[in-house]
């Protein structure tokens, strides 16, 4: 039984990393006042770019960089349309998801079933031997270790630095920025693009460190889970981490049980993360919405009919 819990939690951390990175990227964009439903697309292009570049160069680290760049590129499109052309955020984001699906299927066909060098688990000396915590946290791949730092860094940066303050201001009271000589659009755009880069990184982790493969549509809704996760984490980076690992653990339950020979209908378990998300949103929705950045509330509450 304790084995089972260890496996589920460890799988949760490994499988939750992509969701966490995507959700942190979304947090960044939303703290600046922009919703990016295209996160799913950013994850997808990141996954393919990461895998393809790792396969071509033989270097998975180059793959990570490529994944981040691809995610940033797609997010740049979102930023341009939403900020410069004032297009609807939901419609544009969903279109980007479609575009990501099409692009990755066009350019990804050659990489289905192709081998690429990836990240293998590396045990952290001493720490890996700790009971429970060892296998759950310290027997993973280097990307997962690096991802532990992202949320605390973002938390500190948003809170303690001038640029972090500017991002938060863009999300809360964008109209004061011009008074101090800043351009709200530029700040928002940068936040969206940086967020896309994080999501792309998450995608690359998914293909080069988690699945060790590329296949069409491999992100399977993780980007949308990330968007929902940001809401119920009340736009706080550290809570996002907890939520992402929770989802990762839920996704890990089915394979872990199946590996032990329990016959079960996988699809009932597949729905679990989505059902739980809805339940959590139903219970804490109104309370968390009060924590939403002001400019974002306008997006959430206003109409889609531009």
């Amino acid at each position: 039984m304790s084995d089972l819990i260890t496996d589920v939690l460890s799988g949760g951390v490994r499988g939750g990393t992509a969701i966490m990175l995507a959700a942190l990227g979304e947090t960044l964009a939303e703290r600046a006042g922009v919703v990016n439903l295209g996160t799913e697309g950013c994850l997808l292009v990141g996954a393919l770019a990461g895998y393809a570049v790792a396969a071509e160069t033989g270097n998975p680290w180059a793959g990570l960089v490529a994944g981040a760049l691809a995610g940033a590129g797609l997010a740049l499109l979102h930023a341009a349309l939403v900020i410069w052309r004032r297009a609807d955020q939901f419609a544009t984001g969903l279109t980007l998801m479609f575009l990501g699906l099409g692009l990755t299927s066009l350019f990804g066909a050659a990489y289905v079933g192709k081998a690429a060098p990836g990240f293998a688990p590396v045990e952290v000396p001493l720490l890996a031997d700790l009971p429970l915590l060892g296998p759950v946290l310290f027997q993973h791949d280097p990307v997962t270790y690096a991802s532990y730092l992202v949320a605390p860094l973002m938390w500190w940066w948003l809170r303690r630095t001038r640029s972090g303050l500017l991002v938060r201001t863009a999300g809360e009271r964008a109209d004061v920025l011009p008074l101090y000589g800043y351009r709200a659009g530029l700040i928002r755009g940068s936040a969206v693009v940086a967020g896309g880069a994080l999501a792309g990184l998450g995608g690359a982790q998914l293909s080069t460190a988690y699945a060790h493969a590329w296949f069409e549509g491999m992100t399977a809704g993780r980007g949308f889970i990330a968007v929902a996760l940001v809401i119920f984490a009340a736009w706080r980076p550290l809570r996002v981490v907890a939520g992402a690992y929770l989802f990762g653990a839920m996704l890990a339950v089915a394979p872990v049980l199946q590996a032990r020979g329990h016959a079960l209908n996988q699809f009932a378990l597949d729905a679990l993360p989505f059902v739980i998300t809805l339940l959590i949103l139903a219970v804490i929705g109104r309370r968390t919405l009060r924590a939403a950045p002001q400019e974002l509330r306008r997006v959430f509450e206003s109409s889609s009919t531009s």
Partner: peptide, 8 residues
């Protein structure tokens, strides 16, 4: 609950 319908 006030949750945005695009997400749900």
């Amino acid at each position: 609950a006030g949750v945005n319908e695009a997400v749900t």
